[in-house]
Design a protein around this nucleic acid. Structure first.
Lengths: 209, 209
DNA sequence: ACAGAACCGTACCGTACGGTACCTATACCA
DNA sequence: TGGTATAGGTACCGTACGGTACGGTTCTGT
């Protein structure tokens, strides 16, 4: 099962190494992520690193892939839900999104992928995009579609609606934090931001317009 | 006049060098931006680079500062404007914003600043933030405030309103492009995206609610 | 015309990093 | 017990880059 080159699932040891590497990345940036430092921190040899992951780029990709695979599936679509249920689910989404993009791990991984985006089409950004954003986006889009079908929302294109919701929630916070702005104020502000975003979204796409 | 260390305005020669360096950055990413490459491309010596800019970080900061200083002031606040004038100004802003963040130069500079954000608090992100985003944001916020005073908009906090407008315009396009997604579709889509964003913004903050 | 500054080109130095080779130790298996 | 695979430790190599030194050349001001 671990012999499939298309779906490399690593051993526990290898996963532990990747986690250690991620730790280094978070606290020191990409420049701290040297093969020697990883080997030292993880208690393995450089030779093992190259045997397991090919080269440094492969190791970076493995880090991103592993972390992206950790995105929890979130709540289920809910069979029959009330309008309040929908609103609660949207606020939950908004909170999770804000919390996620504010996290050190997310910021570090995004910085890494963005740094690699200009050179050598390794596609770290694509991995992050597909495994991270797209997955959660898909689910929330489905939620919006459900809301549409149940008559709570009025939208022609759920994809478009999701995009709008994303913008209302994130605004310019993500890019600002990526650039080094203060991580986040307080949980109170986060809560309020999520609420505001969902209120505005409802105002735009709610059925009572 | 050029002796003020707080406001380093460079000579024409130095500006030309910085432009050449930016060119290198845009087409090769940060890894291509070696001091030797810059000296070769700009036809100057490495020694001059170090004399002018101190070290590599100083040179990077000079590149960002120079480019950030190029943000054109945009249209004036307009003394007495109609509601249509406001809408037109907002759409103009939206178009400019989308066009700017989609540009190779902007993407490269943002990638550079983001890459430096985790290590060595040189504050490239702060420069980009203050000289780029904040300047245009300040002006547009003033425009929104004007619209508020004239009764076209209904908002308590212009800053908040601007933030919302930004989110509606940019959505997740910026981060996606930073991660390497396709630059931009067509000018037609851009136009439509701007229009949609302003329409939604007006729906949220318009006085006729 | 001459002195001095600015600058170019090149060569050079030290270091750091990616990647490899080699040797040893431990674990598993017959 | 012996043999093989896996992995750790270390030393090493080549290269690339940041930064410096120096000789030669052009420009400028007097």
């Amino acid at each position: 099962m671990s012999t499939d080159p298309e779906h490399p699932d690593f051993t526990d040891r290898q996963r532990a190494v990747l986690d250690k590497a991620l730790e280094l990345l978070v606290e020191g940036g990409e420049k701290a992520l040297t093969t020697a430092a990883i080997a030292r921190a993880a208690g393995c040899s450089k030779e093992s690193l190259y045997k397991w992951f090919g080269d440094r780029d492969g190791l970076l990709a493995a880090i991103v892939t592993r972390q992206a695979s950790k995105v929890f599936p979130g709540a289920d679509p809910a069979a029959n839900m009330s309008n309040d249920d929908l609103r609660a689910a949207l606020e939950e989404f908004a909170r999770n999104l804000l919390e996620t993009i504010s996290g050190d791990v997310s910021l570090s991984l995004n910085r890494l992928a963005i740094g690699q985006a200009s050179k050598s089409e390794t596609g770290l950004g694509a991995i992050l995009e597909k495994s991270g954003r797209a997955r959660i986006g898909k689910q929330t889009t489905a939620l919006l579609e459900k809301g549409c079908i149940l008559g709570y929302l009025h939208c022609e294109d759920p994809q478009e609606a999701y995009s709008t919701l994303y913008g209302l929630v994130v605004r310019d916070q993500h890019i600002r934090m990526l650039l080094g702005a203060a991580a986040r104020e307080s949980a109170k502000d986060l809560e309020q931001a999520a609420e505001t975003a969902v209120r505005q979204f409802t105002q735009l796409y709610g059925a009572q317009n």
